[in-house]
Design a protein around this nucleic acid. Structure first.
Lengths: 238, 238
DNA sequence: ATAGATTGAGGACATATGTCCTTGCCCTAA
DNA sequence: TTAGGGCAAGGACATATGTCCTCAATCTAT
């Protein structure tokens, strides 16, 4: 990564993409042009980005890696693209790694200069907040569904809906809601039943008269690995 | 769906969720409280929504249905949640259907009242635009990956990267990029090869010296059904 | 040119998941 | 009480997909 101090180039890029009106003068003062060579990393999964990148030249590859080392290619982004904005706006850790495929140039804006917008246009700000939040959750959902088998997704889901009820009253799910569960984790009811059966044999859950009761959270955690649904939000109880 | 004209209730909801500051007075004038009974539809897949809903009471179910009739439950949303904002802001057709699970109350804002924000805070507006766009594409990607087998996804992908080259120069993909392709559609290279082999036998594509050439777009269309990647954007050529 | 190294295609097998159907249970209506 | 009707659970089988391995082609260094 190389920083390039060249306001002229930045302004040229901005006009190339018709963004002159988008960035007010005070914000432009803080823009920095970055150059990345092929294979260089712009954003690293698991870290917290400080800089929001506007891709103006070249092509980057966005992918995520599971704990087990499996990778999932999310997409290729080309100009005009925004990179790392979701995590940056939220201050949450990066879900994906982004590396340059070709030589790449981006305009970077440090997140500290974004915060001033917290006050301005509260309604737009609210929309942006909600949408980035949903985006983050959907990203997790996408990778999770594609990278893990039903067994893991189901264990993880059961954990997420039983977490609130502590040791005392173990969480239970009624049958009609089990059908929704199957649908939510993207599998057939039949197959979910099969997996549920194995959970029963293992003593993780008990099935009785149309209800499912979680008995052994620890056991489920073993199956789910550390891939718990990050947040119950957007994944509400059925 | 029942419209309730009750500014007091609306204001009470807004204060319940700490949104007094978020909605300026002129916008509040246009807010309408809606009530939905269980199983009523708030948003219908394929249509174009005119109203953005703020879920303030009850629970809704968000799901998508494929052309073949398979459904995929996206999530359950509870207050405070935003519904239909992505499509509404973009003016694009709804990707999902939203129905009430319990009795539901929402605050609705017609999209025409949002347009005035086009001028205000251009930078925030730009961010919101980019993020909603990415969200829309990711939603498609999620449903598509979960609802269709590799055969369909691959056919669809090959179509999306060969569409520009018309009859003349048929699109071709080099091998290194084929590996990325497998990764992008979320399968193993081995399995993609298997499917590719069947495409070869069918005469849809030809493989020679490490490249793949699309020969019969129409044939691929048959396999892909009408499930073409909506837009090449965000799904750039490998 | 030749040996070793690298890489892509594909075979063989295991596993994950879907579809269809059967069985038995519970509920309701006469 | 009894005959259906509906529905949940699970068996049997088919299909989709993943993993591991082998073989051959290509490349590279000497």
């Amino acid at each position: 990564m190389k920083e390039i101090i060249d306001m002229i180039r930045i302004n040229r890029y901005l006009s190339e993409f018709g963004l002159e009106e988008v960035f007010p003068e005070p914000l432009r003062q803080h823009m920095i042009l970055y150059r990345f060579e092929p294979d260089e990393t712009l954003i690293l999964q698991g870290e917290e980005s400080q800089i929001l990148f506007l891709l103006v030249q070249g092509k980057v590859k966005v992918y995520t890696t599971s704990i087990e080392g499996k990778t999932l290619l999310i997409n290729f982004t080309t100009p005009l693209g925004l990179i790392g904005e979701i995590e940056c706006l939220k201050g949450w850790e990066n879900l994906n790694t982004v590396t340059a495929v070709s030589a790449v140039e981006t305009i970077g804006i440090h997140k500290r200069w974004l915060s001033q917008y917290r006050e301005e246009a509260p309604f737009l700000r609210f929309l942006l907040d909600m949408v980035t939040h949903k985006f983050y959750l959907k990203s997790i959902s996408l990778s999770f569904n594609l990278l893990y088998p039903v067994e893991v997704r189901l264990a993880s889901y059961l954990l997420s809906i039983s977490s609130e009820d502590q040791n005392e009253i173990q969480a239970s799910v009624s049958v009609s809601k089990l059908k929704d569960t199957a649908n939510l984790i993207g599998t057939s009811y039949r197959h979910m039943n099969r997996v549920l059966q194995s959970f029963c044999s293992a003593g993780f859950v008990v099935r009785r008269s149309g209800t499912l009761v979680v008995k052994d959270r620890q056991g489920l955690i073993t199956v789910a690995g550390r891939n718990i649904y990050e947040s119950a939000e957007g994944r509400e109880h059925l």
